[in-house]
Amino acid sequence: MDLKTKFTPQSWPAHPENATLEGKNKTLGFWIFLGGETVLFATLFATFLALKNKGPNGMEFSTQSLFELPLAFIMTMLLLTSSLTSVYAMYHMKNHNFKAMQAWIAVTVVLGLGFLGLEIYEFYHYVHLGFTFTQSAFGSSFYTLVGTHGLHVIIGLAWFILLMLRNSKRGLNLYNAPKYYLASLYWHFIDVVWVFIFTVVYLMGVLD
């Protein structure tokens, strides 16, 4: 691969993420990895469903008493919107518009940080109530499921930020285009998992 090739929007390939063999391998490998991640989250969901509301005798906490839907709704909106903004970033990546792509990624990162802030606030609130990781099996499984998702958000944000910084001088080329593409796939996957979390954990938790 040659980093010296300068691209114009016209010479930039239509699918830059698949334009090199390395890019093709990375994209496919990442999808396969996401297949593994799917099973990983399924395991966490399954455990949460098995241990939901289970704790020491007379435990006061339950999904009904803890969860507040407005907060979950705002978090959902933030993450869904950030998913769209990263689609915009990839749109500009395919048009070889580096500045616009970086800007949309920055917006994505800001929205993601907002989501993360609310999640930290939520955890802090529960811990304050006495519902901790070690308090019950319910607590352990809840924090592990939602926390693993939160960890993915942190990794996704770090990935985006690192990409923006490392490439700010380099601009867009066929070496880093697949990296951006994969980071955005990862971000969409985080959103996919969250759709199930807000449905299965929060909405179905509040239902009785």
Binding site: P56, T134, Q135, S136, A137, S140
Partner: peptide, 14 residues
Amino acid sequence: MFDANFFDHLNGGN
């Protein structure tokens, strides 16, 4: 190592 309760039946684990 971190006092969770996934498998501890006294705290609701299984």
